[in-house]
Amino acid sequence: MLAYAFRRLIGAFPVLLLVSLLAFGLIHIIPGDAAQVIAGPDASTDQIEAVRSTLGLNRPLPEQFIIWFSNLMRLDLGMSYMLGRSVAQAIAERFPVTFLLTLYSLVLTVPVGVIAGLLAAYKHNRWADTALMTAALVGVSLPTFWLSLMAVLLFSVQLGWLPSGGYVPLSESVIGCLRSLTLPAVALAVFQIALLARMTRATTLEVLQQDYVRTARAKGAAERTVVARHALANVLIPVVTVIGIIINVALSGAVVIEQIFSLPGVGQLVVQGILRRDYPVIQGSLLAVALLMVIVNLLVDLLYSYLDPRVKHD
């Protein structure tokens, strides 16, 4: 297992190289560059060219990539063109917001989603199952940003309970921070809870009908013991897979959620970076996010093989 983890970590480097190449290629296909953004829409060609040379954007693309990559090898992500700080610092400032938001929504999601899913499976075809699954269906059917707009309408405009946007750092006020993240976290969690409940129920039902569970049941084990001992252990497999997916979904959803609720997170950093053609910021933050996802995926795979002995990594 350790050897496998180590191999995967080594294997992550080509992935990250691929990611940076992909990101680098992608952002340079996007029309317009940072020089033009800085020089402004009514700048002359000479002005744009002057800014371009200041930023080093007039060098050939491969050279730019090599410069960027060799800096990366020294763990230097470079300076933002616009933010007046290093990319590493910008990421370090933004990351806690996205991390807290994701964590907050995961903390809401996992217990609620798992319990709802297990309950629905356990009460298969009974009213609790129907009610829970109907709610879950509605939950996965609502557009997250639409739900967010409606939530702002209800909780901020009508009731005035929670702020409509903005972020209070944890260091300034714990309560304030939680208040500023509650609406976005709930808006994100609704979809995730529904997703997790559905997946949990589906797998639990599958497991409950598998041979060894039926054998256990036939042997006269109490239903609750059957569910607890056999089903639950197996249910962890999809749960782990789903959590991996959920972190992806949460980071994705964060792009929209951070926009609506004006949270200075990594999603905003990327979107603003694209909008300003701030290449070092886009590359750096995409790489950071990618690194995080690679680690999450690796952990998921490791847990997966730990939980399911049939999947061997040797």
Partner: peptide, 25 residues
């Protein structure tokens, strides 16, 4: 290993960020 590395690279981008980048490009 080969297929999954490529998939990992794609999956390493949160899907909407990837979609935004592609759509912008």
């Amino acid at each position: 290993a080969y297929f999954m590395r490529v998939m990992d690279a794609l999956m390493a981008f949160p899907s909407l960020m990837l979609a935004i980048g592609i759509a912008a490009a």
